[in-house]
Computed example of a mutant assay.
Amino acid sequence: MVRSLDIANLFRSFGGDPQRYQEFEAPEAELHEAVSTAAPLPSPRAPVEAVRALAEPVVQAEPGELPPLSRELAQLHSSRQASQAVAALDQALSRSRPALAGPVLALTSARGGTGKTVIAAGLAQALSRSGQAVLLVELDSQNVLSSLLLQEASSTTGSIRAPLSACLAVDDRLRLVPFGAPDDLDLQALERALATDTQWLTRRLQALDVPADTLVILDCPTGSTPLTRQALALATRVLGVTTADATGYASLPRLERQWQHCTGQVHPLHLLNRVDPARPLSQDIAAIVAHSWGDRLLGVLPESPDLEQALALGQGLASVQDAWAHGLAELGRELLGELRPALRYAAPS
C-alpha cells in the first residue's frame, strides 16, 4: 500500500493520472526461467584477456619448422608459380614484333663447341667486305667475339661494366657491341631485369639508333636462356648452327624446341659446320640432315685446319682463305639476297 501511494504521489508531481497506473506481478517460475536462459555475464578478466590476445603478434612457422608434407607442398606451390611466370613470359615474347628498322639475324645453338661464334664473326666480316653495314651484337658474357675482332679486346671490354652499353668500330662498315665485363652484382641485376622485362634487349638496341640499311647479327648464348628467348622474339631470320657428328645430330630436336620462341613470320634455317669429307659418319649425318630438313638446310661448312691454326695463334679470321672461308662468304651472299628488300640496300657505286 505504501508503495502504491509513493507511485501515486510521483504521478501527481509530474501531472499524471494515478488512476491509470496498474502493477502486475510476474510468477516466480517464469522469473526463474528468464534468468536461467539469459546469456551469462562475462567475467571481469574476459575483456583484459581479449585485448591481450589482439595485442600479441601471430607467430608464423619458419620454412624449416614446417612438417615435411607442408614443406613439400610449399615448394611445389613456388615451383608452379615459377612455371606460370615463365609461360606468361614466353607468351608475351611470342606476341612481340620486331622493333628495329632493319632485319635481325640471330645465330643459335643447342650446345657448345659448334663454332657458332666464329661463324658469326666470319659472316659479319664477309658481309662488311662486300659493302653491307653490319652491327654485330655479342650476347655471351665470355666476350669471344671481342677477342676475335678487336686487337686489344681485354683492355677494351674490361672497362665496360653495363652489359651491351658500348658500340665499337671494327672497320668502316662493321660495328661490334661487346657484352662487356659486368661483375656478379651486375649480372644478377641483368637476370632480374630479363625475368620481368620482355623488351630489355629491344630497348638496348634501339638506344644505338641502328640505321635501316644495317644488318643486325645477334650471337646468342648457347641453349635456351632469357636473353636467347628475347633475341629469338626480336629476330627476322634465325640460323641454327650444329656440327656434323653424333652429338650434333642428337641436339637437333633440342634446337627445334628452342625455336618455339620465334615469331610466327620467322622460318629458322640449319647450318652444318665441320663436315669432314674423310669421315663417313660425318658425311652420313650431313646426308640425313639434308634429306630431313630439305630447304631448311641453308648449307654446310667443311672442316678447316687453317681456321684452327689461326685461332690457336691469335691471328684472327682474315688470314683464313680456305674452303671454309669461301663457303661462309657464299652463305653470306645468299642471306644478303634474301634480306636485301628489308634492308633497303643501296649498292656502293
Rank of each mutant, 00 (worst) to 15 (best):
A246L: 12
L89T: 10
D276I: 03
Q188Y: 02
A323I: 05
R3W: 04
L89M: 15
G16T: 04
L145M: 08
A250F: 00
P341N: 07
A231C: 07
A318F: 00
P40Y: 07
G112Y: 02
L218H: 07
E72A: 15
A53F: 01
P44G: 06
S128E: 04
Q75P: 00
L194I: 09
A325G: 04
S13I: 03
T225I: 05
F24T: 11
G240A: 15
A207E: 13
G316V: 10
L54I: 06
R95W: 03
L185F: 07
A99N: 11
L168C: 07
T196N: 07
A133I: 00
S224H: 02
H32L: 13
C262G: 05
P268W: 11
D213N: 14
A126H: 07
L281W: 01
L234N: 01
E152R: 13
L54P: 02
A162Q: 15
L317I: 10
L139T: 00
A166F: 03
Q230I: 05
Q206S: 13
E308T: 10
E65R: 12
L272G: 05
T202F: 00
V59S: 12
R175G: 01
D295L: 03
A166K: 13
F14K: 10
L69Y: 06
L271H: 07
A88G: 10
Q321E: 14
Q91R: 14
L232V: 09
H32D: 11
W293H: 11
G294D: 11
L281T: 08
S155A: 10
V59Q: 13
A38H: 09
L234G: 00
S130V: 02
D322N: 10
E191G: 13
